[in-house]
């Protein structure tokens, strides 16, 4: 396959630059098309014109990939919710938090944030099943914020125990949650780029 260079290919890659995999796919497809057109004796400019407007083509690629990216983002959010729930429960048991004690601001933020986040995830999942999936982003953003609040509150509650015997495990679980949260935020930012283009 011939290497694609030139303004058209460059413009297409720039438009899809936020997703390396998608940009590579578009470049490969364009290369195949231009090679075939060259074999047919068509001039490069004419072949590029027939391929279509760069922005329209980039938009079509972004629209094509968006549903899968949304499903992947939902999976990351699901793992985050599961990790948050399990680690929250584990920390509560290890640190002996009394579930019937008078709630504090942190314990409220911890529990309520998680419940709101889980509800938003269910909404996102249902929207993904019933529609094309493009309306999943808003509930996913909401879920990320709510679970983020829950995670922060949960870790702040456990902070005094960091120096204790469970300190390493508390730190490890907290880091896993934060890593998943950052991954989800990154995914959501990427989805935002897709939606702006598509």
């Amino acid at each position: 396959m011939g290497r694609v260079t030139g303004d058209y290919a460059g413009a297409l890659e720039r438009e899809l630059g936020f997703d390396r995999q998608l940009a590579d796919r578009a470049r490969e497809d364009l290369a195949e098309y231009l090679d075939e057109m060259a074999d047919a004796g068509l001039a490069r400019d004419e072949a590029e014109r027939r391929f279509g407007d760069v922005q329209d083509i980039a938009r079509s690629y972004a629209s094509a990939a968006l549903p899968k990216r949304l499903r992947q983002t939902l999976t990351v959010a699901g793992w985050l919710a599961l990790a948050t729930f399990l680690f929250m429960r584990w920390r509560s048991m290890q640190l002996g938090f009394d579930p019937f004690a008078r709630p504090t601001l942190l314990s409220l933020a911890d529990g309520t944030g998680f419940l709101i986040g889980a509800a938003a995830l269910i909404v996102a999942w249902r929207r993904g099943r019933s529609q094309s999936g493009s309306d999943m982003r808003a509930p996913l953003v909401f879920a990320a914020i709510a679970i983020g609040v829950s995670t922060t509150a949960s870790l702040l509650r456990a902070l005094p125990a960091l120096g204790g015997p469970d300190g390493t495990l508390i730190l490890a679980t907290g880091l896993i949650q934060l890593a998943l949260l950052l991954l989800l935020i990154g995914r959501l930012r990427l989805i935002g780029r897709y939606r702006r283009l598509a």
């Binding site: 027939r50 391929f51 279509g52 083509i57 094509a64």
Partner: peptide, 28 residues
Amino acid sequence: IEEIRRRSRGSFNLPEGTVYPALHRLEL
């Protein structure tokens, strides 16, 4: 692209590059 052009006798006036992202979408 060629087969679509042949079977439609050229009546589909669509930028030919549009077929590639559609193939990608169907694959995904």
